[in-house]
């Protein structure tokens, strides 16, 4: 397996394959700022939770590298993960019934982390395998283990993501597209790329 391309975004900016692509002007509405900058036309974006918005933007940043629809339809598998699940919208939904006295259906539907993969599947017409894992922290070797399984199951490409939108954690999204080629380990490379993006 081989990393084809990767992107990263946080409140500081957005980068593709290690190179900065955009630096945010505003802190509050930074996902919208990038949406405008990328000239996206997908009104549903504005209703999404933070996880879905970040993942969609991170994928848009690498959209040119995605294989064609014939391959991605079932041959692209998704391996997504974070530590905080959907806790930001969990708290917002709780607020809708404890403070506003009206449980909000539009918040409730985002109180599951795997909605992210669902939103991407809808936008890009991906019907393949997908799974969302809750991990204590970013774990490159765990991604590699899941990648091996995905390629054994017939994937041609795999889109991996670490996406976090939690009040007590760094809001960030790191995606990397992996193709099924020679069977080399990726763990160290993935770890290194992630650390570079985080300036660690």
């Amino acid at each position: 397996m081989k990393i084809n391309t990767h992107s990263y975004l946080s409140q500081l900016g957005a980068a593709v394959n290690g190179k900065e692509r955009y630096s945010f002007q505003e802190n509050d509405n930074w996902t919208k700022e990038l949406y405008v900058h990328l000239k996206l036309d997908y009104p549903k974006f504005h209703k999404m939770d933070g996880l879905s918005k970040m993942a969609l933007l991170a994928v848009e940043l690498i959209a040119e590298a995605l294989p064609n629809q014939e391959i991605t339809e079932e041959g692209l598998h998704l391996v997504f993960s974070n530590a905080g699940s959907s806790s930001d919208f969990d708290a917002k939904f709780i607020n809708s019934y404890t403070e506003l006295n009206m449980p909000s259906p539009s918040l409730f539907v985002y109180t599951l982390p795997n909605i992210v993969t669902g939103e991407l599947a809808i936008k890009y017409k991906w019907y393949g395998e997908s799974c969302f894992f809750i991990q204590k922290k970013f774990n490159a070797s765990f991604f590699e283990e899941q990648l091996k399984f995905a390629f054994q199951k017939g994937a041609s490409y795999c889109l991996c993501a670490w996406v976090e939108d939690h009040p007590l954690k760094t809001k960030e999204c790191f995606v990397f597209l992996v193709e099924n080629s020679t069977n080399l380990s990726l763990t160290e490379e993935v770890e290194k790329i992630y650390k570079q993006y985080k300036n660690e």
């Binding site: 079932e74 599947a121 890009y124 991906w126 019907y127 395998e129 799974c131």
Partner: peptide
């Protein structure tokens, strides 16, 4: 065992049962 996404709606199932059809077929 297999999974497949409907690629249709986040809170309602596909009208054609697309994802279930694909997962069972596969």
């Amino acid at each position: 065992g297999k999974t497949s996404n409907d690629a249709n709606h986040i809170s309602g199932p596909s009208r054609t049962g697309e994802g279930l059809f694909r997962a069972v077929s596969n």
